[in-house]
Write a protein that binds this DNA or RNA. Sequence first.
DNA 1: ATTGCTTCCGTAGTGAGGTACGGGTCTAAG
DNA 2: CTTAGACCCGTACCTCACTACGGAAGCAAT
Lengths: 147, 147
Amino acid sequence: MLKKRNVMTIGTLARTAGVGVETVRYYQRRGLMSEPEKPYGGIRHYDEQALARLHFIRASQWLGFSLDEIGELLTLQDGDHCDEARELGEQKLTSVRRKISRLQQIERALNELVQKCSSGHGDVYCPLMASLNDGVEDATTDKHKVR
Amino acid sequence: MLKKRNVMTIGTLARTAGVGVETVRYYQRRGLMSEPEKPYGGIRHYDEQALARLHFIRASQWLGFSLDEIGELLTLQDGDHCDEARELGEQKLTSVRRKISRLQQIERALNELVQKCSSGHGDVYCPLMASLNDGVEDATTDKHKVR
DNA sequence: ATTGCTTCCGTAGTGAGGTACGGGTCTAAG
DNA sequence: CTTAGACCCGTACCTCACTACGGAAGCAAT
């Protein structure tokens, strides 16, 4: 008993996955998804696999992988390359942890500044601005790229 | 006794602040820094104020302000607008905290996946890939923008 | 005086991840 | 049968923060 596969147009596919039609087409152009053959003169249809692929991409993106990295992951898809996949995962984990601690530093600094601003309200000058003018105490000590 | 002010060329200024010459010129075009008058047919010189401005910009950037927001901050520079500045700071603080908790979620998920990958090594399939294929457990439940 | 590094200045390109547009074709509802 | 709404497709445009390019002119040392 062959259950007829859930067939969708690109619009339905996109809506179901919560992305825009243009985004799906963009992923196709990037080579992250294949374009199904189109029936002569007609409209392409997409199945569950396409939807799964879209989920894969969004899930990976959510984990901080770039589209290029996702492309890499996709070449490892058969499950035979667990080590490579884990390696990529570990790299991401490291970079996520770096980001977290940088943001925590920033949070502490910003919090302190805002606190000062709220309390010492008698003065004429603004402590936040003052700190920014001084370079936020050792924030600019790392003179590297901010990006 | 007038101490002759520390005068720099754009190159020295940039190097001192740890940015590129092009970056300084870019900030000028963006209206974040002024261009000093140039002596007839000659080379512009920059003083400590310009350097301070550059520090201000980098410090603010480090705190997560965009160049547009930094422009706003700069219009509040006189210190008479402490409330507005604090308001901006608080907004940033909120967004930084959001980012942190999002990243912490990601960290937990990624860590778990990598752990699984390292341990259960007898199977043929890769747990990381498997999870990505399933959508990372409720990661894709929030079907919104990843950006 | 010649080499060689800066500076000056405008314009254009980069990368990441899309989003928008416009003209043409299909399909489904009324 | 007409019309509204998808779809198809290529190309152009967007944001953000830079970065590069290229030619002319200045300045410092040899």
